[in-house]
């Protein structure tokens, strides 16, 4: 066998995409979306729709570069952002001059380690799978819409005509069959990599270092930190600019992290209410 010569690279890096250990036990799986090699082809958007039978999102021209999807939604579980900027990708290259760069990034549900949607779901429709992903059970969801407000990324979305909430399942059904999610399988340049989260994390850190060495100083990981506001993403990113430029919150915090505070305030308020009622009767004769 003649292997392709040269050093292994991030795109030919062969990660075992089986979602189960050889002994059959599930592994924590996720995505690493490396936007430095995204070509903005939108194969992820389409492959996702084909597999998950997601309805089309209507024909609306936005004029926002080549993005006519706009954002993640109930009918677009992947969304490729396009950002045109008047500066070159690598700053270390003195000859690159006043280049352009066209950032492209495929956004997806982050499958937060500490997921607000999951926390607030009152029916148990949302649950954490054996692969550490967060999935909506469509036979359970009653469309209360709480998760929609809770998600700090605007991922969860209610499909009006259907009434339920839809989002990326990280192809839960495919994972149960040890198949790669549809978007990652389709991605032509493997900008979307699927695999065990710990392996992806190591890969991602290595990749940032490589890019920094190549002068791409803007390269940064987003969502890779395990103790960020949502406990780290199951689907994290390598970005070339601030997250908000891609329509992502720069420092998302799961609201339920402060639930204690809130219940505390509510308890105090409730107590005050009880006291207030009691006070209203002060001086009243029995």
């Amino acid at each position: 066998m003649t292997a392709i010569s040269g050093d292994p690279t991030i795109i030919s890096h062969d990660i075992d995409v089986a979602s189960h250990h050889p002994d059959g036990s599930p592994r924590a799986m996720g995505f690493f979306t490396d936007t430095s090699i995204c070509i903005g082809c939108k194969a992820c958007e389409v492959a996702c729709k084909e597999w998950n039978l997601v309805p089309d999102d209507g024909l609306s021209f936005t004029g926002d570069s080549y993005d006519n999807t706009g954002s993640i939604g109930c009918n677009s579980w992947r969304h490729v952002a396009f950002i045109e900027q008047g500066r070159p990708v690598a700053v270390s290259d003195p000859e690159a001059g006043d280049g352009l760069r066209w950032l492209m990034s495929s956004d997806v549900c982050k499958h937060c380690a500490h997921a607000a949607c999951l926390d607030v779901c009152p029916t148990g429709a949302l649950f954490r799978t054996e692969f550490d992903t967060v999935v909506v059970q469509q036979d359970i969801c009653n469309g209360c819409g709480y998760c929609v407000s809770a998600c700090p990324f605007g991922v969860l979305d209610k499909r009006r005509e259907d009434g339920r909430v839809w989002k990326c399942t990280l192809c839960y059904d495919r994972l149960r069959g040890d198949l790669e999610p549809a978007c990652a399988q389709a991605c032509p340049t493997k900008s979307i990599q699927f695999g065990p989260v710990d392996e992806l994390l190591a890969l991602a850190r290595e990749r940032v270092d490589t890019l920094h060495q190549r002068g791409v100083g803007d390269a940064r990981l987003y969502g890779a930190d395990r103790d960020n506001g949502v406990g780290g993403f199951g689907a994290f990113f390598l970005l070339l600019d601030q997250p908000e430029v891609y329509g992502l919150p720069p420092d998302p915090v799961v609201s339920t992290r402060r639930l204690g505070q809130m219940w505390g305030a509510a308890a105090a308020a409730a107590g005050a209410l009880a006291l207030g009622v009691a006070a209203a009767f002060l001086g009243e004769r029995r």
Binding site: I11, I39, Y66, W102, P188, T189
Partner: peptide, 28 residues
């Protein structure tokens, strides 16, 4: 097909894109 161009780029190839417009190819 462009995946092979990206493979080459990762191995150190210089990718040159000549075009009247800056396309998704130019971006990479």
């Amino acid at each position: 097909g462009f995946q092979w161009v990206m493979e080459a780029k990762e191995r150190g190839a210089t990718i040159i894109h000549v075009d009247p417009r800056f396309t998704r190819t130019s971006a990479l």
